[in-house]
């Protein structure tokens, strides 16, 4: 019994596990990135100067260099890349919600023996490599690819549609790839929805579309938000899809980071970009949590 007094409560121990996980696999790597972002590039291995340098035996100095962040703020290229990523992420998130919501709704309302096969249809493509699925879209969308040959074969168009290497191709690739991330959380919330609420509303003379707007939609908002986050955040840093399907004018942060890291060998600047992207993503998320909590407290 004595020992128990000195041990932390079991509850704290359980919470400590995810915190430890986050510290080890998120905070620590981020601190490495932050450290590199404050150094200067050099031509050597590794290609940046260490922050802590020994000047004379025993004397150690720490040199911190903020010029990378200064450059990011001064050069309009980085701002336009941020705006480019924001635009693609916002539009794709909206598209995913518009397409994913009816899908999740239909699955949740279908007879129970249909639900598992329908969900499997959503999940199955994920058993193929992400890269192969994107390459498959190249085969479908390119100049003499499946889609154009089909449309021309049917006589609907005379010359191939230019879809590959355009922003449209990027949206198709992103929406296709991230759609399950919207459908699954939405399905999870919609299936738990208490249908008696809708019956009660109907008994009181509420029209179906109003039932949806007043009951189903507000109650499924947690699923909408979760789905939106799961799409928006990764798409902000997306590199592979715009690089493979997009054209030269698709400027996004992920690509810019690649250029700084590989073409310019400027690890410090690439790290500053990564740090800024993280701040740009975490800030709205923290604010959202904050307002959610206030709303919950107000409701209680």
């Amino acid at each position: 019994m004595k020992l128990k007094q000195y041990l932390p409560p079991a509850r704290n121990l359980i919470i400590a596990v995810p915190w430890f996980w986050l510290a080890l696999f998120f905070l620590l790597p981020f601190l490495f990135v932050l450290k590199i972002s404050l150094s200067e590039p050099i031509l050597a291995q590794p290609p940046y100067l260490d922050l802590i340098r020994e000047i004379e035996d025993g004397f150690v100095t720490i040199v911190v260099n903020f010029s990378n962040y200064q450059l990011l703020l001064e050069d309009s290229l980085y701002l336009s890349a941020l705006l480019g990523s924001l635009k693609v992420a916002t539009v794709s998130t909206l598209l995913c919600l518009l397409i994913g919501y009816p899908m999740a709704y239909a699955i949740a309302r279908s007879p129970s023996h249909w639900r598992l096969p329908l969900l499997m249809l959503i999940i199955l493509p994920f058993w193929t490599s992400f890269l192969i699925r994107i390459y498959a879209w190249i085969g479908i969308l390119k100049g003499n690819g499946l889609l154009n040959n089909l449309l021309m074969g049917l006589g609907l168009i005379d010359s191939p549609l230019e879809i590959m290497h355009t922003p449209l191709a990027v949206y198709i690739g992103v929406v296709y790839n991230y759609l399950p991330f919207v459908v699954l959380p939405l399905y999870a919330t919609l299936i738990r929805l208490d249908l008696t609420l809708l019956e009660a509303a109907a008994d009181l003379g509420c029209r179906p579309w109003k039932q949806f707007l007043l009951i189903t939609l507000p109650l499924s908002m947690p699923g909408v938000l979760a789905g939106a986050m799961l799409v928006f955040i990764p798409v902000m840093g997306e590199f592979v899809i715009p690089d493979l399907l997009g054209g030269p004018d698709t400027l996004m942060l992920g690509k810019l980071m690649w250029i700084e890291f590989f073409n310019n060998k400027d690890w410090p600047l690439a790290s500053s970009l990564a740090a800024l992207l993280l701040v740009a993503l975490i800030l709205p998320f923290v604010l959202l949590r904050h307002f959610e909590r206030r709303a919950e407290e107000a409701a209680a």
Binding site: L77, S80, P248, L251, L256, N263, N264, D266
Partner: peptide
């Protein structure tokens, strides 16, 4: 030189994206 390479890469990104 490293300086020239960096100028070239930045200009290249601008030209490619039509900025």
């Amino acid at each position: 030189s490293e300086r020239e390479m960096r100028d070239m890469n930045r200009t290249w990104t601008r030209v490619k994206t039509g900025q």
